[in-house]
Design a binder for these strands. Structure first.
Length: 405
RNA sequence: GCUGGAAUCGUGUAGUGGCUAUCACAGGAGACUGUAAAUCUCCCGCCUAACGGCAUCGUAGGUUCGAGUCCUACUUCCAGCACCA
């Protein structure tokens, strides 16, 4: 679980102060499964007696972490404030579940940047950054030059801000280890060098590999439109569970290592069982439950499993969804988008219901899906987007459901 | 500041003033499967129950019967030169 670090081995860290931090920018209303990989490492360290601190990027989030394709749009301050709250909440709940830890320090880098004077910053910090090295970074090269999208001074300076964070936390709290995703290694290392230069002390960075889909070779879960979010408002618990359940045999081993608390022996045992009959998808099931339980709690993960059993073919499946009991429908509504039939006096058209529940982007899309036979109500394919007068389950495609109760 | 280029879907792209803006990737659906992978077929701006309607090639004007394409201004980016160090 190490991409690149700046120390000899974990044993070396054990000699030290046992304080570390992880940073996250409030650039969205929720963390994604990309961030979750870092959170799992944080939890692992916390279980072994290390003391975690979360840094929320109230300052850095106002600038935006430069990506290699192009400049980001600035987020409004209100949006940043909202995102901050949501992310801190997620961080706390995930780490406390995965590490049985109640108290987690949270700091906001805006608290110390708010009062920093620009000239002081250039004098004390900027002076220690080499332009040659700054220009040498991959994303800068990708942004400058023929056919490139360009880069603003604000984004260019991002890593100075992040570097200063590390120095600040080192001085104020004695934190001498930073955990980050591999894409952040450069930014984190700049802080490490600052500490060395200014205070003559040692600090380290532990970056974990970006999770790559072994089939497509693409970065995992962050491809813009279809990110998998930790917030149930953005990705339902059911979809979250299904996402892990649908992983390929090639990917599942690596994902278990990164995203579950299992020790190597446990992983081996599961993979052994999995390989004896792959069609049972034992590894995927284990992975899906484990991750869902950490993010959403064991109870909701259990509901997601129940819903999966009833809604898909196999043991215990209910092919006619109208036979699902009202109690079950209510329960499934906790992990699936749901809509109340009774709350609408007028007959609600199927198309409207699907669009308002967020299952389908537009009514035109619904029409296309119906034409291709993708939509069914209680197991019966529908021919037109007529009114919807029964309770039960609407199914769109293979694994999108709308509970009507 | 000067000169020359560039801006087309989530991404990368094609596009002599003329019919419905091309292709690929990503994404979605169907078939086949193990809710996997691979493969095949279809879809992939918005509205409408439907016939159909309305948009859209950085922004705003203009020329033209007709503009993604030509002209003008603006915005942003790139390159070279100059200026400044």
């Amino acid at each position: 679980m190490v991409a690149q670090n700046t120390f000899g081995g974990v044993a070396e860290l054990d000699e030290r102060r046992h304080k570390f931090y992880l940073g996250a920018d409030p650039s969205a209303a929720s963390l994604t499964i990309g961030n979750l990989a870092s959170l799992m490492l944080v939890s692992c360290l916390a279980r072994h007696g290390y003391e975690p601190t979360l840094l929320i990027g109230g300052a850095t989030g106002q600038i935006g972490d430069p990506k290699d394709t192009g400049e980001r749009d600035l987020k409004s301050l209100e949006e940043i404030a909202k995102n901050k709250k949501a992310i801190v909440e997620q961080f706390r709940s995930v780490v406390s579940r995965a590490a049985d830890l109640e108290k987690i320090d949270v700091v906001d880098n805006y608290d110390w940047f708010r009062d920093i004077n620009f000239i002081d910053f250039l004098r004390n910090i900027g002076k220690h950054f080499s332009m040659t090295q700054l220009l040498d970074r991959e994303f800068v090269k990708a942004r400058i030059g023929e056919g490139a999208s360009g880069i603003s001074f604000a984004e260019f300076s991002y890593s100075l801000i992040q570097g200063y964070d590390f120095l600040h936390l080192f001085r104020e709290k004695g934190i001498d280890l930073q955990v980050c995703g591999a894409d952040q290694f450069g930014n984190c290392a700049s802080g490490m060098h600052l500490i060395k230069k200014l205070d003559g002390k040692r600090a380290d960075v532990w970056s974990i590999p970006l999770v790559i889909d072994p089939v497509s070779g693409k970065k995992f879960g962050k491809s813009e439109g279809n990110a998998i979010w930790l917030s149930p408002k953005l990705t339902t618990v059911f979809d979250f569970y299904q996402f892990w359940l649908n992983q390929s045999d090639e990917a599942v081993l690596g994902l278990m290592k990164t995203y579950t608390r299992l020790m190597p022996e446990g992983v081996d045992a599961i993979m052994g069982a999995h390989n004896s009959d792959r069609s049972m998808r034992i590894a995927q099931k284990s992975l899906a439950f484990g991750v869902t339980a950490v993010v959403h709690g064991a109870e909701l993960a259990g509901v997601a499993i129940e819903a999966t059993k009833k809604l898909f073919d196999g043991d215990g499946a209910v092919s006619d969804f109208s036979k699902i009991s009202d109690a079950d429908l209510k329960e499934f509504g906790r992990v699936l988008p749901s809509i109340s039939l009774a709350s609408r006096a007028e007959g609600l058209s199927l198309a409207e219901a699907l669009v308002s529940a967020g299952l389908v982007a537009s009514k035109g899309e619904v029409r296309r899906l119906i034409t291709s036979g993708a939509v069914s109500v209680n197991g019966v394919k529908v021919a037109d987007s007529s009114e919807m007068a029964v309770t039960g389950v609407v199914k769109v495609g293979k694994n999108k459901f709308l509970v009507v109760r």
